[in-house]
Design a protein around this nucleic acid. Structure first.
Lengths: 243, 243
DNA sequence: CGCACCAAGCTTGTATACAATACCTGTATA
DNA sequence: TATACAGGTATTGTATACAAGCTTGGTGCG
């Protein structure tokens, strides 16, 4: 059982406190977003229950919540799996993202405060650091956070919620390990933020569009590699069945 | 226990089949959308479990799913309640709706087939019938169905899913009984469909915008009545506490 | 050799028992 | 009379036991 309490816990019978449902949910949520858990991975209830030292009841609730976020797919009588996106679905996601991101930026340009800009800049600095350190899980999370934090500045909680639900799903678009999630390239977040600060609505929207287009283009490039990998997998399977 | 099987069931011990989770979910979902269950209504687990003749386990799953749809609010250690929207939130919903509805119509205009148009017209006929029969719960559901079915024609499942999640939530905007949900007025759905059929993108989008503006205006008008009703409630409470 | 079938084991689905928490009512006191 | 507290009641939260279903590996037959 994993120990979750913050303190070091003096080894001795000190009553290990159980992780809350919220904690387990957040951990799995982040792990999937960071692509530590790849799409199609099976999430067995008994396995998770033992790992966290809670009953299956809790795990089931967590899996249901993640299914609501579309990060997990529940198959009746078969269990829970990390969800995955086809290339077509991924393209749809980016199209929806562009639409809503533009609407949000148009509003945010008019209402953003210096404090909010400073907060976003801090995030960009952290991104750059993670990029230099080649800590790609962290970078992935920070990149998403830039967009979700931007969405949060929108007064329309339904639009911002939509983005906050859609963005994590982009992590489900690759079946195979990728060294670098193509969010973050160069310093596009910084460029977008500069334009937002300058108050130039159309330029900021255009930059955001280019940014998302770029991510999607990288996705398309990756897709052919994925197909190749998929083919290799199938061949391996066929070979192993010969032995 | 409520009997859910379709057949008449020959009274005698014929083994009453239990309603599935899906059935209970759909029933509660529709009931909330139709405003048979008003916002803030408490949804007790034991009560529902007995009513449907299943264990609380099933009911909890249903309530969690409904919470994922934002139709139900779960309060820790206090239970589940039909969710409700403030006036401000309702206005945000309509703004988001307008944005996405426009995007969807722009695409649907270009791809809709005669069969799809016929299917939507059938729905409009049913609406008119329900309106004449003054069956407002049915009318409410049919009106929503017009919009969700239109959304379904969009090739982008993420945009259509967004609308399908947002539309039911508009039912949560009134605390007090209203004779007539202000979706459907006159024959606006018919007008929108005609314009879509004609292929005039901008006119169809404009008509849809007007339609949603109209609904929102009716909401704002209702809001002051609600406030009044709310005041009456508070007075009643104060009076009853005097006895 | 290949395919179909069957049984054991494992995983998920459901009900229930018990624990923890919140709510309500009645009583005592200022 | 109003308020604060305490006990009992009702409701939700969690764990566990059992039922139902899928998966898999083996066996037999074509």
């Amino acid at each position: 059982m994993v120990r979750t309490s913050k303190a070091a816990q003096t080894s001795q019978s000190k009553a290990i406190e159980k992780p809350t449902e919220e904690f387990i949910y957040t951990e799995l949520y982040n792990t999937i977003c960071e692509r530590q858990l790849l799409p199609k991975t099976k999430l067995g209830e008994a396995m998770l229950a033992e790992h966290y030292g809670v009953s299956r009841t809790i795990i089931r609730q967590v899996l249901q919540r993640l299914a609501g976020d579309r990060l997990v797919k529940l198959e009746p009588n078969r269990g829970a799996f990390v969800a995955h996106l086809t290339l077509k679905e991924a393209q749809q996601i980016y199209e929806a993202w562009r639409l809503v991101e533009a609407a949000i930026i148009r509003e945010v340009v008019k209402t953003i405060t210096p404090e909010q800009i400073a907060s976003l800049r801090k995030l960009i600095t952290a991104e750059r650091k993670a990029c230099d350190a080649e800590d790609y899980p962290l970078l992935t999370r920070l990149s998403m956070q830039f967009h979700t934090q931007l969405a949060n500045l929108c007064s329309n909680q339904f639009l911002s919620r939509f983005l906050k639900e859609v963005i994590p799903q982009t992590a489900l678009a690759y079946f195979y390990e990728v060294k670098k999630m193509p969010v973050c390239m160069k310093d596009e977040h910084g460029e977008i933020l500069d334009l937002i600060e300058s108050g130039d609505e159309e330029a900021a929207v255009a930059a955001a569009k280019r940014h998302l287009d770029g991510i999607e283009a990288a996705l398309n490039a990756q897709a052919s590699l994925d197909q190749q990998a998929s083919l290799v997998d199938k061949l391996k399977l066929r070979v192993s069945s010969l032995s």
